[in-house]
Amino acid sequence: MAKAIKWIFLVLALVFYMLPVYYSVATSFKSLQEVYRYPPTIFPTSPTLQGYQEAIRNQELLTYLKNTLFVSIVATLITVIICVMAGYGLAKGTFPGKYALNRLVVMTLFISAQVIMVPLFVIIKRLELINNLWGLILPAVYTPTGMFTAIQYMRDIPDEMLESAKIDGANEWQIFWKIVMPLSQPLVAALAIFSFTWRWNDFVLPLLVVNRRSLYTLQLALAVIQGEYGGVPWNTILAFSTLTIIPTLIIFLLFQRFFMRGIMAGGLKY
């Protein structure tokens, strides 16, 4: 009975969540005439790769892909490291000002890139990171949501474990590497997935930093296809965006492997 309810819920949710996704993939295979046809067609009546051909035409797609991969991977590595460390420090630290710093992290959740865009540009310019892929990485590695996720996760790690390690003579670094890191596998996986998605889809920083085609990212290229006025080539845009989702999907499936029981049975005494 409970199982049946669960599956009915899942199927209904799946329809709701996948409808726009399906529709966008289906539209990417339509001709422009069909995109604008009324009544709308649920299946492409004569599927065409026209949108995909347009999407890759005149684009140095491999260059964009290389740039985006470099930025996403490097930024994700740094983000995961600093978030796990800081999350641990802010959850389990004993330094003065810990409370205030925790509050500060929450406050940064509310700041959107669009708001700080202009001053951010000035700083990136001062650091001479304009037209430099590091200009897409360094300003982005502190991610409020990632930080907050790490803090909340670390809070769930029982203090007793850290205490007992201390009693056994481990120093702080050993505790971090030998106890905290192994317990943080699901966190690392989640942060990696999130961070990769954010950097992959980032649009504000590339817009600010990049003035050269050789440094374009996929999202910047996508924004450019959207072109000028109405009458947007939707099949092309959706073809391009369908293509850009594939790598994130692969990362997601890869990193899922790291999700596993965080706290191993028998590792704890309560």
Partner: peptide, 21 residues
């Protein structure tokens, strides 16, 4: 030719003027 997204075009031009790029 550097493509600038249409929706953010003016932002980009003004920031360019401001920063001298």
């Amino acid at each position: 030719i550097v493509d600038v997204p249409y929706a953010q075009y003016e932002q980009k031009v003004r920031l360019g003027i401001m920063g001298g790029d």
